[in-house]
Design a protein around this nucleic acid. Structure first.
Lengths: 203, 203
DNA sequence: CTTCACTTGGCACCGGGTGCCGAATCCGTT
DNA sequence: AACGGATTCGGCACCCGGTGCCAAGTGAAG
């Protein structure tokens, strides 16, 4: 994080954001597989080699925002008061981290549709999901007084993300309501162990 | 499934099992990335092209047994009696599907260590996990009287696998006890919503 | 022997991803 | 104005995973 306000050297020919914009558009227009990295780079006016300086893989061009959410959740979980029950805190923080500006919703949905439907993108999710899960696992571990690699801590982190992914998918498929609504109700069901009365047919 | 007992044509130069054996050995000896598909094929006395006729990707050579488990779980869930509560049935079936013969345990652990530590293999897991999750989601959907793509059905399928993966990882890392023990206790915690009294420090 | 069914090897080819190096551009210093 | 360090760039060669294609090997059935 060198925050030198006065840069030096050859100016960048493009930016991360620009590449993300172009990639998302081409992926939705032509499909992920049918779009080569060179297509994206050409449209941005740079070379394929430069693309891989911004993103270490073709798929990662779609994951920047998700990674930012991980940092946000981790920070929020660090400030949860002791009185708040564990699962309630997780639910509150996760839901709160998923409030998006109206102008970003279209792109968010486009990204999620791609991630949910293209096998190569589903595969690329692993490492990003892992970081998300660890953020929750480490919080759970602190609450349980166990190492973050302990069985329950990991189970909680992973089960939480798994539940959120179900909510993401439903939302991106139905496009009817607020994302946070889906997250909230799903995480509530998780916190009740998916007991029969908690999963009584809503809608 | 043409179950002709009398084959015809040129005999195979190797077998799926043989390729799996060799691949697992080379991966553990040299590492996954450092082993090329041609290395595996050469050792089996076939060509690279033939390897890709047995497995559609380098990573999939490790996933056959897991896929078999999916089929087993799906079949067992189809015969769960109506009286048995949903989450209890899932726990029983999953645990029961994970009893392995003593002679297979070493390979199982080697595979899980690879899958847990190599990013490329973690990525390859997505499609296999998806099938596993759907087996559980579809059972949950029948019980809930909802489509298998409904929010709660998907959440249950995914959260169940997520919890099992935590158990897998702990077991393959510690190597101290029975895999089924880890699965059982983790799934019990899930079914209780990870409530404080259910996750009181065991071990 | 011929024909059919089936597997195999080999080749060309594509695209993702990396190492390497020299060139372009801007800044500050002399 | 000239130099040097810093930074990004383009382009090339290269590796490897993965696919399409086709000809050749091989065993059983007719």
């Amino acid at each position: 994080m060198t925050t030198d306000n006065r840069r030096r050297g050859r100016p960048p020919g493009t930016s991360r954001k620009e590449l993300q914009r172009i990639a998302l558009r081409l992926f939705t227009e032509r499909g992920f597989e049918a779009t080569t990295v060179e297509d994206i780079a050409d449209e941005a006016g740079v070379s394929k080699r430069t693309f891989f300086r911004y993103f270490n893989s073709k798929a990662n061009v779609l994951w920047s925002d998700f990674d930012a959410e991980v940092a946000e959740i981790r920070a929020a979980l660090a400030e949860v008061p002791q009185e708040e029950p564990m699962m309630a805190a997780i639910r509150r923080v996760v839901v709160s981290a998923n409030h998006y500006a109206a102008e970003d919703v279209a792109d968010l949905r486009a990204r999620m549709n791609l991630i949910g439907s293209v096998p190569a993108l589903q595969a690329s999710a692993a490492v990003h999901y892992d970081a998300w899960e660890r953020a929750v696992s480490e919080f759970a571990a602190r609450r349980l007084g166990q190492p973050s690699t302990s069985l329950f801590a990991m189970a909680i982190g992973r089960a939480t993300l798994a539940t959120c992914r179900a909510a993401y998918d439903r939302w991106s498929a139905l496009a009817d309501s607020d994302l946070t609504k889906y997250l909230d109700v799903a995480l509530l069901a998780l916190a009740s162990g998916f007991a029969p009365d908690a999963v009584a047919a809503e809608h």
